[in-house]
Design a binder for these strands. Structure first.
Lengths: 210, 210
DNA sequence: ACCCCGATGTATCGGCCCGATACATCGCAA
DNA sequence: TTGCGATGTATCGGGCCGATACATCGGGGT
């Protein structure tokens, strides 16, 4: 999971650990609280051993702050790493549909082909629907046997589940009726893989917020 | 965290592992996906070593199904365990306010005194407000630098955060203007600790659902 | 001029928790 | 009668977390 996230970010641009953590925190917003260094550094080591990324001492030309000399390891994705990233993006296991997994996959949807996007969206929907049904069961069947606070907790959970299903429904509808291309709007370069069919289209299924 | 949940459930009635897991899954609904046996059994062992619970071979009088003979370990809370449970319920660290921790504490609110309930509710609110502010920052400041899908993810997260803050606000208001007692409605006995001031009052802050 | 503090930065360790797996028994239906 | 799904206990490898340690840099206060 983290592996996919790191590979995805390093595909945009090389980074050192600290930066990586910050990007991770903002980009994966909700579905993933800020990741710990106790996770990050061992994972980076793992990826390096596997050959997906390489480590290089701070390139002084690009990064002016800090007079160089000492520390500051910059990580860079390899060709194998890009391949690995593509594999992980496309294949969806059960862990793809839990909160963390779905969040990471969704965050990279602009680099995912439409078929995969739909598959993941629908898988997630099924998952949330199951939880929703479970909560409905508890709330109807077990009306009197749970205390008021527990019931309130279930109600809030049910509310959130229903809301997410609706959200997913809108996203799925949008995907199916292929929206206007409008191109990827970020300023990042992404120089690789010109042979792939362009990912394109942005979603905008939300009610407008003030 | 799990420790608190197990102690709380065993306070209601003795149980074996399998039952425990099911109760855990329903009672802690949203904020905690079903717990794994790979977690449960080691934790039970830990609690036993610490002296908070004891293990006893299936009491054949109470439990008719299964002709006894073999397996089926029933766990029971000890006096020390009850003390421990009370401590854990009252004291709130940072882990009390993340999704899992808050869910567990909330699920036992009917056995928590009002002051603690308020403290936990307010702590959780602060936590969610922080996440909400972070998301607002990202959405306003970084308008163009993120792709459409990432933005949509942030929006959905922000929506959920705002909603939860409102929910907590209602609960806090309810707590402060001490609602009607109406007694604990469950069928469980809870024979212990008659000296404590009664927990009482149920919440009902939700908009009515069909 | 000095010093301390907060941000930046890398790294490890103990421990919780998960998914996969293995094994055994019971009731029921094909 | 056979076999399958629910019940039931248990372990193992590994991911991820929080706490902790350590080091440097820029800037603000005194």
């Amino acid at each position: 999971m983290l592996e996919l996230a790191i590979l995805g970010l390093l595909q945009e641009t090389p980074m050192h650990g600290y930066e990586l953590r910050k990007e991770l925190a903002t980009k994966l917003g909700t579905f993933r609280a800020a990741i710990s260094y106790g996770t990050l550094y061992p994972t980076l080591k793992r990826l390096q051993t596997a050959g997906w990324i390489t480590e290089s001492e701070s390139d002084p030309s690009i990064i002016p702050p800090m007079t160089s000399r000492r520390g500051r390891v910059v990580y860079k994705i390899t060709a194998d790493g890009k391949e690995r990233f593509a594999d992980l993006l496309a294949q969806a296991g059960p862990e793809t549909y839990d909160d963390a997994g779905f969040g990471v996959h969704f965050a990279f949807f602009s680099r995912t082909d439409r078929a995969t996007r739909l598959r993941i969206l629908e898988g997630r929907r099924r998952r949330v629907e199951e939880r929703r049904e479970g909560l409905r069961d508890v709330l109807s069947r077990a009306a009197g046997r749970l205390d008021a606070y527990t019931l309130e907790l279930q109600r809030h959970g049910l509310d959130a589940a229903e809301r997410e299903v609706r959200w997913l429904e809108e996203l799925i509808t949008n995907e199916r009726s292929g929206r206007a291309p409008a191109g990827s709007m970020g300023e990042i370069d992404l120089p690789a893989d010109p042979a792939e069919e362009a990912p394109l289209e942005p979603p905008r299924p939300h009610k407008d917020r003030p």
